[in-house]
């Protein structure tokens, strides 16, 4: 097993774990962290893919994609956290409730 494969498998595993956090854990903050773990997993896969290039400098395109992805995920996280705080201030809830549709 090579270095790249190790990280690729780790990416696949972390993606599933993040998905678990997103789907199974009820707390909104856990869900947001789940999304972030999923993002990290995808970045791991991308950066490992970049590492295939022989020589010291890896493929720069996946790196640029990851940097873009990190910025996007920070932006989305910041917005989600603001939304969570607003929800908590308005209603005191920290989970998505079943009853919010038919108010």
């Amino acid at each position: 097993m090579t270095q790249i494969e190790i990280y690729l498998l780790a990416g696949a595993a972390m993606f599933c774990i993040g998905l678990y956090g997103l789907v199974v854990r009820p707390h909104l903050l856990h869900k947001v962290m789940g999304l972030n773990v999923m993002a990290v997993a995808v970045f791991l896969v991308l950066v490992s893919v970049a590492r295939r290039v022989p020589g010291p400098t890896p493929d720069a395109l996946p790196h640029a994609m990851v940097l873009t992805g990190i910025v996007v995920s920070v932006a989305a996280t910041a917005y989600s956290l603001a939304l969570i705080k607003r929800i908590y201030t308005e209603t005191g809830a920290v989970t998505l409730q079943e009853t919010d549709d038919d108010a």
């Binding site: 199974v24 854990r25 009820p26 707390h27 903050l29 956290l81 969570i84 705080k85 908590y88 201030t89 209603t91 005191g92 809830a93 920290v94 989970t95 998505l96 409730q97 079943e98």
Partner: peptide
């Protein structure tokens, strides 16, 4: 955010029970 979600001075807290995380979806 963690600190905020623990703060006791929520203006009005109708759904305190939700904090236990009993509903899941």
């Amino acid at each position: 955010t963690v600190g905020h979600l623990r703060s006791r001075n929520v203006p009005y807290s109708k759904h305190r029970h939700a904090e236990d995380g009993t509903s899941s979806n």
